[in-house]
Amino acid sequence: DESNKPILLPNESQSFERSVQLLDQIPSYDTHKIAVLYVGEGQSNSELAILSNEHGSYRYTEFLTGLGRLIELKDCQPDKVYLGGLDVCGEDGQFTYCWHDDIMQAVFHIATLMPTKDVDKHRCDKKRHLGNDFVSIVYNDSGEDFKLGTIKGQFNFVHVIVTPLDYECNLVSLQCRKDMEGLVDTSVAKIVSDRNLPFVARQMALHANMASQVHHSRSNPTDIYPSKWIARLRHIKRLRQRICEEAAYSNPSLPLVHPPSHSKAPAQTPAEPTPGYEVGQRKRLISSVEDFTE
């Protein structure tokens, strides 16, 4: 099969070098950035008060330690540790928490760990991170309901609301924008112990962030949302095809390698009803078989 044979790379090609550099910018793992907010007593309706908090309760602090690993920003190499735009020179604080497994990295933009500057009256330095995160974990210690939209931002799609209760338990629920209701189930609340709260809140936030990324990708319907490693695979396959075309153009005697095509017509299947918005969006999480067989 010609399409699977190794090909020689061009010795000097600026377009090839640019493509390789672009490939280096696509990590081999999925990345997520999640905002974390603490809401104190009497702050449920005040964005400024929430963003001005420099610490929270003892249970909130224990919750943070379970979310991930504490890292010092100045020691991080952005090409190895995903920071979601946090500055490593102290502009966004000294520490944050991050978490990773074999296929993804997540960083938490924690408002109480970011510096509260006197010259920044409206807390814009914090909002440029927190307001651009799709998902926020809100530790609501106010005793009042927290409403979506209290923290203004164009991309605040989903809130994971943590409400501490007695007996070391917590109520965990989801809020989302109306255009996200087909992807996020907000109907079920959970009672979770303090011990298990970081794991549950983190998983709910990661799932909500993946759904938000799919939702946000609708602005470019021709580019369905893939995982990062599938995006790398697609980029490599496009690069291979372009090299083959350039080689055939410079030397017409060489065969032009095309991806294999299936001449056999697909079997006719009964027509199915058109899937609704929710089903269609969830299918976009699934990769096409052509990603692996071309």
Rank of each mutant, 00 (worst) to 15 (best):
L37Q: 01
L113C: 04
P6L: 04
N53A: 02
V184N: 02
L9W: 10
P78H: 04
T186A: 06
M180L: 13
S250Y: 08
S3T: 10
L8I: 09
C98A: 11
V162C: 09
A49N: 04
Q281P: 13
K228Q: 07
E62Y: 03
S261A: 11
T293Q: 10
D120A: 09
Y38C: 00
E91N: 12
A211K: 02
F108C: 01
Y249D: 12
H159C: 13
I236A: 06
K147D: 13
H215F: 11
I224A: 10
F108G: 02
Y139A: 00
K147W: 05
Q21A: 11
R238C: 13
S193L: 01
I110A: 03
D120E: 11
H55K: 04
D30T: 07
D125W: 08
F108P: 01
Q203V: 09
L113M: 06
S253I: 10
S217E: 08
A265C: 12
G84M: 06
T96E: 09
R123P: 15
S173W: 04
N53Y: 00
H100W: 12
Y225T: 14
Q43W: 01
Q154E: 15
P10D: 15
N209D: 10
H55N: 07
P10V: 14
K237I: 15
P198A: 12
S212P: 01
K190P: 15
L171V: 13
F157I: 05
F157C: 14
S217M: 07
P270N: 09
Y139T: 00
M114F: 03
K264C: 11
N140F: 00
E47D: 04
I137W: 00
G42F: 15
E2N: 07
T31C: 14
L233C: 06
S261M: 08
Y97S: 05
S212A: 14
S142I: 01
D24K: 03
S217Q: 09
L22I: 06
S15P: 11
E294Q: 11
H216L: 07
A208N: 02
Y38K: 00
M204L: 04
R59G: 00
F16G: 05
Q105V: 14
N53W: 00
Q203D: 05
S46V: 02
G90Y: 05
G56T: 02
R195F: 05
N45E: 08
D141N: 08
A106T: 14
I71V: 10
E91T: 08
T116M: 06
D125R: 15
Q14F: 13
G66C: 02
A208R: 00
Y97G: 03
R202T: 09
N53I: 01
A208P: 00
P252F: 09
R123E: 10
A265N: 09
Y58I: 08
F146A: 01
P260N: 14
I286P: 13
D87G: 09
L174Q: 04
A265R: 09
G40Y: 00
Y58P: 09
N209L: 03
I191C: 06
T65S: 14
Q281R: 12
F134A: 02
H258R: 08
H32N: 04
R202C: 07
L254V: 13
P260G: 15
S263K: 07
S219Q: 13
F95C: 05
N11S: 11
V188E: 06
E245W: 14
H216P: 02
Q154V: 13
V107I: 08
S253G: 13
F146M: 04
G182A: 07
G182V: 07
D1H: 10
Q105L: 14
T186M: 06
G40W: 01
N4Q: 13
S219C: 12
S52N: 11
L254T: 15
V88Y: 05
V88L: 12
A247T: 14
Q203W: 04
F157H: 10
